[in-house]
Amino acid sequence: MTSVLYDVPGPKARVRNLLIGGVGTLLVLAVLGFVVYRLIVTGQFEPRLWEWITYVNIQYLLLDALWNTVSAFLVAAVLSLLLGALLAAGRLSDHSWVSRPAVVLIELFRAIPLLVLIFILFFGVSRAFGIDIPAFWAVVIGLTLYNGSVLAEVFRAGINALPKGQSEAAYALGMRKTQVMTNVLLPQALRAMLPTILSQLVVVLKDTALGYIILYPELLYQARFLGSQGQLGSPILQVAMVVAVIYIGLCLILSGGSKLLEKRMSRTPKGGGAKPAEAPEELAGVL
Score class of each variant (00 low, 15 high):
A76W: 05
A170W: 00
F225T: 12
W50K: 08
I131G: 05
K270H: 12
A284E: 12
E278M: 07
L220G: 02
I236P: 01
V70S: 04
S255V: 10
A274C: 02
R110L: 07
F225R: 03
A13I: 05
L254G: 04
E262R: 03
A135Q: 01
R127P: 00
T182A: 11
V140E: 13
G211H: 00
L219K: 04
R176S: 15
T69M: 03
L82V: 14
T25D: 10
D64G: 06
L117V: 05
L115P: 14
G84W: 11
Q229T: 13
Y60A: 02
M193P: 06
R110H: 06
C251E: 10
D94G: 07
E153H: 04
N17S: 03
A172I: 04
I213G: 00
W50M: 04
H95V: 14
N147Y: 03
V103P: 01
V243P: 03
A128H: 10
L226T: 06
F129C: 10
R110N: 08
L87F: 05
S255T: 11
L114M: 09
V116A: 11
Q231N: 14
F155K: 00
N68V: 04
R176V: 14
T178D: 15
H95A: 15
L210Y: 07
M175H: 04
K164S: 01
Q188Y: 01
A240C: 01
D207C: 02
P187K: 05
P217T: 09
I118C: 11
I248W: 12
V56C: 03
L151Q: 14
Y212M: 02
Q238Y: 05
P11S: 15
Y60D: 09
R176H: 15
V125R: 04
L74Y: 08
V8T: 15
M241C: 08
F123H: 12
M175A: 07
V180E: 01
G158I: 00
V180D: 04
A192V: 13
Q188K: 00
D64H: 00
S167M: 15
A88P: 00
I120A: 15
E168W: 05
P163E: 14
S199H: 01
R267T: 01
V204W: 03
W67R: 03
L49A: 00
R38Q: 11
S255R: 08
Y146W: 13
L5K: 06
K177L: 12
L186F: 05
L194V: 04
I118V: 14
R191N: 13
Q179V: 08
G10C: 07
L115N: 08
A89C: 08
A65F: 06
R224C: 08
S93D: 01
A192I: 09
N17P: 01
L252K: 11
K12R: 08
G148A: 01
N183E: 13
